[in-house]
Design a protein around this nucleic acid. Structure first.
Lengths: 169, 169
DNA sequence: ATGTGCATGTAACTGGTTACATGATTCG
DNA sequence: CGAATCATGTAACCAGTTACATGCACAT
C-alpha cells in the first residue's frame, strides 16, 4: 500500500482524496482503500521523508494537502519495484502493479506481463482439467465459479497477448 | 470468512486442509487464506456450535479433522445470506459468494447475478467514458489498467448474461 | 537420508476497516 | 434549510499474514 501510494505520487502530485477518487474507478475490480488507511499511510510516508506536502488554502474551498514524492521516495519506490517477484499473485496485486506501469522500464514491464501470462495460462489449463474430469461431481456454486474463472482467465490471457503484441510492435 | 467456511461445510464435510486445497484453485483470482486464519476460524465456529468435528485417525495416515455444519450453523448461514447486500462489492467478494451459490434459492441467485450485472454494466460505461474523454492525458499505467478493466468487465458481463440465460432456460 | 506433501496448530505482528468527529461548500 | 460532496483526520478494533513448531508418510 505504501508503495502503491508512492507510485501514484510519482505520476503526479495528488491529495489523499484524489488518490481515493482515482481508485474508486477500479473498486469493482480491486476494491478501494478506506480513508482510515489512506491518510495514516500518507502521514507515515511524510515522516519518513518519502513525500512532501503543499497545503493549498484555495479561496472559498476547503483546504487541500497536495502530496509530492521526494527523491528519497523515488529511490525507495524503484528499489521496491526492483525486488518485485509477484509469483502467483492474485488479480488484485496484478492490477495494482499494472497501474504503476509508468514507473517500470519497458523491458521490465514486458517481463512482468509475460510472467503473468504464464501464470494465467497455467491456471487456465488447471481449471480446464478440473472441469473436464470432475464434471458431474460438482455442485452448482463450484461449477459456476469454475466457469467464471475460465471466462475471466481466457479474457485476461487474450488481453495480455494483444497488449504484449502492442508493446512490442 | 466465517460464513464462507460455513458455506463450504454446508456443501460437504471437509477438513481445514481440504478447504485450503479447494481455494488454491482460485488463488490467482481471489487469493487463498493462510492456515493461520483458517484453523483459528474453524476453532471459533466449533466453540460457537456452528460446526462439529469428526477426528478420523486413518491407518498409516496423519490424523484428520473433518468438520461438518450443524443445524445452528445452517441457520446462521442462511440468516447471513438473507441480509447479504453486496452493493458495489469488488470482484473477490463476488466470486466468494458465487462459490456459495448452492446455498441460495434459484430466485435469490438470479437476483444476485442480476444485481452484479447492473453494477458491472455501470462500471463499464464509466470506464468507457473515462477512456473516451481523457484519452491522451493518461499515463501508461492508467491506460493499461483502464484497458484491462474494460476487457475484464466486458468478459464478466457477457458471462453473466449467458449464465443468466442458461439458468432461466 | 532428505525432501516433499499431508496435516495440524500457535503467537506476534500488521494492516486495514469501522465508526467517529469536524468543517466548509454547493445544490436543490 | 437540509442534503450531498469535498476534505481531513483519529482511535478502537479485528481479520489476516508471517513465522514458527510439530509429526507422519512416501518417494528418490
Amino acid at each position: 500500500m505504501r508503495y502503491f501510494i508512492l507510485g501514484f505520487l510519482n505520476q503526479r502530485p495528488m491529495s489523499g482524496y484524489d488518490i481515493k477518487q482515482f481508485l474508486e474507478q477500479f473498486s469493482w475490480l480491486i476494491g478501494s482503500p478506506s480513508f482510515g488507511s489512506l491518510y495514516p499511510a500518507l502521514h507515515a510516508l511524510l515522516e519518513e521523508g518519502l513525500v512532501s506536502v503543499d497545503i493549498t488554502a484555495r479561496a472559498d474551498k476547503p483546504l487541500r494537502k497536495i502530496y509530492s514524492i521526494t527523491n528519497a521516495g523515488r529511490a525507495a519506490l524503484h528499489e521496491w519495484l526492483g525486488q518485485l517477484t509477484l509469483s502467483d499473485a492474485p488479480l488484485k496485486s496484478f492490477v495494482m502493479c499494472l497501474i504503476l506501469a509508468e514507473n517500470l522500464s519497458p523491458a521490465g514491464l514486458a517481463t512482468y506481463l509475460h510472467h503473468r501470462r504464464d501464470q494465467v495460462a497455467d491456471h487456465l489449463t488447471g481449471l480446464s482439467q478440473t472441469v473436464g474430469t470432475t464434471d458431474d461431481a460438482l455442485d452448482l456454486g463450484q461449477r459456476l465459479a469454475l466457469d467464471y474463472g475460465l471466462a475471466i482467465a481466457t479474457a485476461e490471457l487474450s488481453w495480455l497477448d494483444s497488449t504484449l503484441a502492442g508493446l512490442a510492435g
